[in-house]
Write a protein that binds this DNA or RNA. Sequence first.
DNA 1: ACAATTATCTGACTAAAGTCAGATAATGCA
DNA 2: TGCATTATCTGACTTTAGTCAGATAATTGT
Lengths: 291, 291
Amino acid sequence: MQRNQIDQVRRFNRLLTRRVGALQDSYLKRGRPLSQARVIFEAGAAGGIDLRDLRGRLGLDSGHLSRLLRALEADGFVAVARKPDDGRARRVVLTARGREEFAAYDRLSDRLARSMLAPLGAAQRDRLVAAMGEIERLIRAAELTVAIEPADGEAARFCLRQYYAELEQRFETGFFAGPDDAAELAPPSGAFVVARIGGEPVGCGGLRRLAAATGEIKRVWTAPSMRGLGVASAILAKLEAIARDQGHARLRLDTNRTLTEAHALYAGRGYREIARYNDNPYAHHWFEKRL
Amino acid sequence: MQRNQIDQVRRFNRLLTRRVGALQDSYLKRGRPLSQARVIFEAGAAGGIDLRDLRGRLGLDSGHLSRLLRALEADGFVAVARKPDDGRARRVVLTARGREEFAAYDRLSDRLARSMLAPLGAAQRDRLVAAMGEIERLIRAAELTVAIEPADGEAARFCLRQYYAELEQRFETGFFAGPDDAAELAPPSGAFVVARIGGEPVGCGGLRRLAAATGEIKRVWTAPSMRGLGVASAILAKLEAIARDQGHARLRLDTNRTLTEAHALYAGRGYREIARYNDNPYAHHWFEKRL
DNA sequence: ACAATTATCTGACTAAAGTCAGATAATGCA
DNA sequence: TGCATTATCTGACTTTAGTCAGATAATTGT
């Protein structure tokens, strides 16, 4: 890590701290303590929230939160009710008055955002927004996790639905998914992994047994909004580690010629193109990597 | 301003608020109240600061600040002394112990910056840093001011020195500045303007009388780190407004063929190429705009 | 069925932040 | 010179924030 990179990040943090401080100040100027405002904000943003989650999210002591809520109830901003499925737990929702207050905070955030864009010309505005999107994606990519999950689980199905839809659109021939093979993509000689960022599934990949000591990588997919951040590379790394643990000595995979970005990825991770090893009608290239 | 732009800025602000909050938390975890930490930080960053400025910067009540300082003095972190030139005012400087504490806060900022870079690969790190630099420049560009200043003032000389050095480097023939003409670049039929961002000079431009009702734009320059942010455009706009006020009906200017970015700028602001109107040996193109 | 666990609330605190009306002293200016 | 101004300090608050040890009630596991 270079010193000038660290300095740039620090300058950036310092600059943004001021901007963010300005927002907190304007929250306070609405005449409500900051922690009360934060409760209204969280409850409003999610359309109601369990106290347990709220406490975790704001890092508040349970006694403190309890008192905050009583104050907000007394002022008519929130209503707290038992949860029907668990009588110990409770849930806050905003009243009509609370929603008004939430809207006011919402307008303040909006105003801050506008004030950052307002002094810029159209071209510079586009550049600012693009750079913010880039930073957001990169920072969120830092929370990337890749873990084994069932290939017929909810997250897996969510990813695969989008994967198939994308293949259907990109392949010159269209695409029809073959028979369900979730059972193959599971231990002891296979696996399915889901990549998540902040809890949201953003990618997946499968591994199955192809032949003795040979695994096959399948269904590697990254959400379009998260491409270029190393998600697919992390998925491959995970699958390769799993394959090694399961005793595979080499990995193979096939790919369609329209998926050009995948070629670069496989080449970069040490896969070498080999001769056709299957009769997949959608495949144009075949790769292999020794583990 | 588009809704999706505003939303991107808001998401970005929300994300950064958390990061910044993490820094504030770690300040607090050093066992010192946040406002004391902020005083140490401000005093340390500037190598001493007047109470008046400190109060303005942190937005503190004078009584509150007074007590904070007494607490910090009692703990041996700061020394407060009368200012020699104004016995009412006072100034805080850090003691050796205070500087140690400051260094600790400094290390925390550093650690936060490192923690943002650490989980990324080299390519993504570069992209994050580049995007942060872009945002920093764009946000700072929002504070751009362009004002008339003397052509022989400190800021003007600072800009012109760099302007001449750059011409010397970029012109195929090298460049030697002609005789001093600061007197021409002044009212009533001329002007010199300096563009500043956050007090720092980042560009300049001159206007002089060329003939009856005709002004000439000269020495338009933008600091390399601030190019592409509309600084030169703002300088031209200012000079054009001044020329109009001074009764000029048209503006002319010449430029060297190596300054390609200047051509686009002039064309974009309505200057049209005309025939040679002077014998400037460094000029290859001549432009005019009717006001 | 009942002990352990979980979720929240209450009481009794301390610490920090912020406010406001004077008091004190140096300075600027008529 | 003396009066208004400026910069800071002091005292006497109130409000927020945050902590911790129980109390209460619902739920879970055995």
